[in-house]
Amino acid sequence: MDEDEFDVFYNASYRRVCAQVYAMIGDSDEAAECVQEAFARAWAHRRKMSSVDYPEAWVRTTAYRLAVGRWRRKKYAGRATDRAVGVRTEMPAVDETHVALVDALKKLPEAQRQAIVLHHIADLPVHQVAAEVGVPTGTIKARLSRGRTALAALLADEAPGTALEGGVR
């Protein structure tokens, strides 16, 4: 992967992966920082990236692991998170409806949330979700089914007016 290829990859994928990681972890600032760090690692390993079938999946997985690691460090040790890519990026205000959805996603078990984000937001087919998560497709289907049911219940519990118009059938 040369500079031009990386730049095209980064510019085309960054915002999409950020949104996906945001949906997974529920923190948009943290998602942006972890995704930037994951892209930096992709560039650092660019020779290896040339043989990776799905570079975007590699970046997404790396960013997610970074985010989980930071969250655990903060939770257990009370330490400030690493700021690998310069100063903390100030994020714009996030759409209220997105916040409601992400809040609901945060209440799901991690495995269900990951399956739902990869399938419905990253738009991956079930077999690719299974490959990325490392479990059988049947497991992913079960997680999706349970996750959608739970998510529907959580969204139904929203305060009136917070749901998107047309978002509720």
Binding site: T97, H98, H120, I121, L164
Partner: peptide, 11 residues
């Protein structure tokens, strides 16, 4: 009950 798929699609 809210349809989560449409919300996810919209996201």
């Amino acid at each position: 009950m809210s349809d989560p798929i449409s919300r996810l699609d919209q996201f």
